[in-house]
Amino acid sequence: MTLHYIVPGDDFTRAGEASGDLKRKMKKLGFPSDVIRKVSIALYEGEINMVIHAYGGEITAEISSSEIDLTLADTGPGIPDIEKAMQDGYSTATEQVRNLGFGAGMGLPNMKKYTDEFQIESEVGVGTTVRMKVYNHS
């Protein structure tokens, strides 16, 4: 099963919709709760990043009985130094976004921690694509 989501830029009221929806669908399909938790956390962090750092983007989720593949693509400003961005605590979040509780610089590290495969490609001025896989163990 393949699912597509459009993540609108700068709309916090809708951020979290894709991860919420995918969580519900995976529950219905009977995935184990730890697999659902990993997928929803990783996807939420990615979704929020697209909203606060990249004016929105697109998500494709492919669900099979053996794994969940997530692709998050945006055409935002890109990340100049991925290694730095991946470090715990590194954040360029604005004051406004920090006041909402974001900007701990833990989003990308969470995504890596909660997924079995994690890849990030980015080009400044072109955009960022994150690919993640979570294996289903049951």
Partner: peptide, 21 residues
């Protein structure tokens, strides 16, 4: 900090925060 909580808040715990959004 939301992504701290996201990564670390245990299931079935009460989560105390000042983030009312």
């Amino acid at each position: 900090l939301l992504s701290f909580a996201m990564g670390r808040a245990p299931e079935d715990f009460a989560w105390i925060t000042v983030m009312g959004n």
